[in-house]
Design a protein around this nucleic acid. Sequence first.
DNA 1: CTCCCGATAT
DNA 2: ATATCAGGAG
Length: 220
Amino acid sequence: MLTKKQIEFCLETIGDMFPDAECELVHDNPFELVIAVALSAQCTDALVNKVTKTLFQKYKKPEDYLAVPLEELQQDIKSIGLYRNKAKNIQKLCKMLIEEYGGEVPRDRDELVKLPGVGRKTANVVVSVAFGVPAIAVDTHVERVSKRLGFCRWKDSVTEVEKTLMKKIPESEWSATHHRLIFFGRYHCKAQRPKCEECPLFSLCREGQKRYKKGLVKLP
DNA sequence: CTCCCGATAT
DNA sequence: ATATCAGGAG
């Protein structure tokens, strides 16, 4: 586990590497964001954007998703994967929005989590990106980066990772830091071929040291 | 814990 | 051929 000072140094460095990190899911309003994030489970943002580009032209409002048979919606999002669950969730979600939320996306995290296909991570993305509420959505990248660097313990659940990060990062920095961690994980500290050789955090990274001992990292 | 699942990188 | 991708539900 890194000290609070070390974590601050890491976040500052990562901020210098990705100063303008932001949400990469293309959307025009909170409703489109909810759909995009729900679709993004176990799938790349790039692929979600490819699908929503045409999807959002065909479906504008919750009513539009309910106006077609389930099978048609499935076909429209098939290339994303997990498409049967996602199509069903989207139709149920739209039904709930209409019947219980006046057709609008709720601004409250606890209400968002009640929507089918929307868990803690998705709700955090929506309140943060769409409504400007401070939040840290712990996705696969944030979890991996936090554990590799030693922001938290290896066995921590995503809930524990989120609590730890919220405790060690000032609230005003939650949303920006969260996006920087995602960019760092997506483009630098990648799951399959992390760029340890050119990483400014290598010397204090627990995973980096482990990889070095294994001979996986060749220093210049 | 398992299942859902196609696209892409390695 | 296998690992991974802005996870969530049962």
